[in-house]
């Protein structure tokens, strides 16, 4: 399916989507509260069938955080990029790991590096950093006098 076709299909599925221009793939922004119903729909709809979540990450825009999900379909080979803006002071979003199991590890990584809290995540603990780590290293305002070397 081309990007245009995808766009019309997705709007039909979820009218409140906001599309972004540019990029190789279709970019769209969704409210955090609407993530789970939308995700369930694009996973289960037969003509979309986004069964492969191949990248899950977060970007710190200083004013807010943006969750970025890359979905693709192993059946139709189309790809979309789903974004969701989070409040920087209290970032919370529903977990996707009941729909895509790979989200469990990726969300744990985002949790410790960005401090995003994933609601209903089965095992939200630090994966890479030590359990007692303070701060979120991949945020732009993170300072670490010992481990970071400024160029």
């Amino acid at each position: 399916m081309s990007n245009e076709e995808l766009k019309s299909e997705l709007v039909a599925l979820h009218p409140s989507l906001v599309f972004e221009e540019g990029g190789e793939w279709l970019n769209m922004v969704i409210e955090p509260s609407e993530l789970i119903p939308f995700a369930e729909k694009i996973r289960s709809a037969d003509h979309l069938f986004f069964d492969y979540l191949f990248c899950l990450t977060c970007v710190d825009w200083k004013t807010h955080l943006t969750m970025v999900y890359h979905f693709s379909s192993t059946k139709y080979r189309h790809t979309i990029v789903l974004k969701s803006k989070l409040d920087r002071n209290n970032p919370e979003i529903e977990t996707l790991c009941r729909i895509w199991k790979t989200a469990e590890f990726h969300e744990r990584e985002v949790f410790e590096l960005f401090g995003v809290k994933f609601l209903h995540h089965p095992d939200l603990r630090n994966l890479i950093l030590p359990d007692v780590w303070n701060g979120f290293p991949l945020r732009k305002d993170y300072e670490d006098a010992v481990n970071m070397i400024k160029l």
Binding site: C55, V59, V68, H70, K101, T102, F105, H106, L138
Partner: peptide, 19 residues
């Protein structure tokens, strides 16, 4: 770069180990 994410294959493959 403002932000870079590397999607590494091993990370996802490892998550299937428990299963």
């Amino acid at each position: 770069p403002y932000r870079i994410k590397f999607r590494s294959p091993g990370f996802s493959n490892l998550s299937a180990l428990d299963h």
